[in-house]
Computed example of a mutant assay.
Amino acid sequence: MGNFFLKRVYEPFDDSDGFRILVDRLWPRGISKEAARLTAWQKEVAPSPELRKWFCHKPELFEEFRAKYIEELRTDEQKLSIFGELIQLTSEGNVTLLYGAKDPVYNHAIVLLEELNRIIEEVKA
């Protein structure tokens, strides 16, 4: 069974990355598709355009952003379907969620990883 990991898309590829899934709605600036070495681009699991624009990576909005994004993740059928696919991939190996944000603490990928791990723990219980 693999695990989920987070990594900026600009960090170098590593064999331990396993499946490399870009989880941003927009393509990250300054990186080619070849350099990204993606397995898939799951842009629909990212925050809605409205939520993304509202948050604008402002740390003071992060807790409210987290709550709104979790609500999207738990109620949007397309996001829930992608969750199932991502969790299934861990049965085959590691899954690295790639994001483009500069801030490694206040970004949507952190929330996404927490929610994926929460679901996995619920399933195990």
Rank of each mutant, 00 (worst) to 15 (best):
G84W: 05
I119N: 00
K68C: 09
L22G: 04
K102Q: 10
K79G: 02
N117S: 14
E50V: 12
M1H: 11
L112Y: 05
F83A: 05
D76E: 08
D17K: 05
S16L: 11
L26F: 12
L112R: 02
A35Y: 04
F13M: 02
P59M: 08
V105L: 14
F4G: 01
V95T: 03
G84S: 13
N117V: 14
W54N: 01
F55I: 01
N3M: 10
G100D: 08
Y69L: 08
K102W: 07
F5M: 06
L61W: 05
N117T: 12
V95A: 06
R29N: 12
I119D: 00
E115A: 07
L97K: 02
K53P: 00
E121S: 14
D76A: 05
G84P: 03
E11F: 11
Q78E: 15
L80M: 14
F62P: 00
F62Q: 00
A46K: 02
M1Y: 11
P47V: 09
L22N: 02
F19E: 04
V95F: 08
A101K: 07
R37L: 11
M1C: 06
S81V: 02
L113N: 04
R66Y: 15
S48F: 11
E64Q: 13
E44A: 13
G100K: 04
G93P: 02
E85V: 14
V123C: 10
Q88R: 13
T75V: 01
D24M: 05
F19W: 10
V45A: 08
E115L: 05
V45G: 03
Q88S: 14
W54T: 05
A101M: 11
L98M: 09
A125F: 09
H108P: 01
R74L: 10
D15Q: 08
V45R: 00
K33W: 06
I31Y: 10
D76Q: 02
H108V: 06
P49G: 09
K7F: 10
A67F: 01
E72M: 07
N117W: 03
K7Q: 13
G93Q: 09
F65P: 01
E71N: 13
E122Q: 15
A125I: 08
L22T: 04
D103I: 09
F62G: 04
N94G: 08
E92W: 13
D24A: 13
K53I: 12
L22A: 12
L22F: 09
K43E: 11
E11Q: 14
E72C: 08
Q88L: 14
P49T: 01
R66P: 00
K43M: 09
E122F: 14
E121N: 14
T96L: 04
A40P: 01
Y106A: 10
T96C: 07
L113M: 12
E115C: 05
